[in-house]
Design a protein around this nucleic acid. Structure first.
Length: 248
RNA sequence: AUUCCCGACUGUG
């Protein structure tokens, strides 16, 4: 029933902006979802003017349309635009506020991010994760840790955020402890600790992780190749590079 | 049917 919208989404999320636009043009009866999906397609292709243009042309705008617009400004570091659009929103929900808090953090203002979150009447798990990341970004690992302990229903992002903060702070052993304690590990959590080891010269630990990983992507390969090249025997890095599949 | 249904927010990079 929503074949047209689904096509726009499919092309949009895979970065085929032109195809997404053609799919959108082919839709006979566009609804508010169609317009949002086209905005998302532009956002995925990092084309902020396109996002805002579609937003302006939309016959109807709902919370999601507004949220998509603000979020697109955020990824281009346009805090001024994000804040300006946020102020004009006719309604706001929890997600809107989460996006604003994310905007502050991503533009280098973790204190404003935390201040925003602390004024919110309700917090979701996403909010808590942004909160934790804001304190980590300020370098306040103690508060981040206290928050980590207090968050109900921690998810993979909470665990990886905390682990990443510890690793960035130079506490590789605590980061490793956290990794081992995680209820489930995904590619991002593996890559995070792999990179932490690789970037600090722990080639043995990095290699061991690399071998044990259930899946690897280009970031995993990049991390291990960089680490291999940083040590005296250059042939290790070369062999590693040559053994990398063209698609992974 | 504000409850179903196609869209928005957070982690490595």
């Amino acid at each position: 029933k929503y074949v047209g919208n689904t096509l726009v989404q499919l092309y949009g999320t895979s970065g085929c902006l032109d195809s997404a636009i053609r799919a959108f043009d082919a839709i006979l009866s566009r609804n508010v979802y169609s317009w949002s999906l086209l905005m998302s397609a532009y956002a995925q292709s990092r084309h902020l003017p396109g996002v805002l243009n579609v937003f302006d042309m939309s016959p109807q705008r709902d919370l999601v349309s507004w949220a998509t617009a603000v979020s697109a400004c955020t990824q281009e570091q346009r805090l001024d635009l994000a804040a300006s659009i946020f102020k004009q929103m006719p309604q706001r929900n929890l997600v809107s506020w989460n996006i604003l808090a994310t905007a502050y953090a991503q533009c280098g203002y973790p204190h404003d991010s935390a201040a925003t979150l602390s004024r919110m009447p309700q917090l979701s798990l996403v909010s808590w994760n942004v909160f934790l990341q804001a304190y980590a970004q300020m370098g306040d690992l103690q508060t981040a840790w206290d928050m980590f302990q207090a968050i109900p229903d921690l998810d993979a992002m909470s665990w990886t955020s905390m682990m990443s903060a510890l690793a960035r702070n130079g506490d590789l052993s605590k980061a490793t402890e956290l990794f081992d304690a995680m209820p489930s590990r995904d590619l991002v959590s593996w890559n995070c600790l792999l990179q932490a080891n690789a970037q600090t010269g722990h080639l043995a630990a990095a290699s061991s992780m690399f071998d044990k990983m259930p899946q690897r992507d280009t970031m995993s390969w990049n991390a291990i190749i960089h680490a291999s090249v940083e040590q005296p025997d250059m042939s290790v890095g070369r062999d590693c590079f040559l053994s990398m599949p063209s698609r992974c």
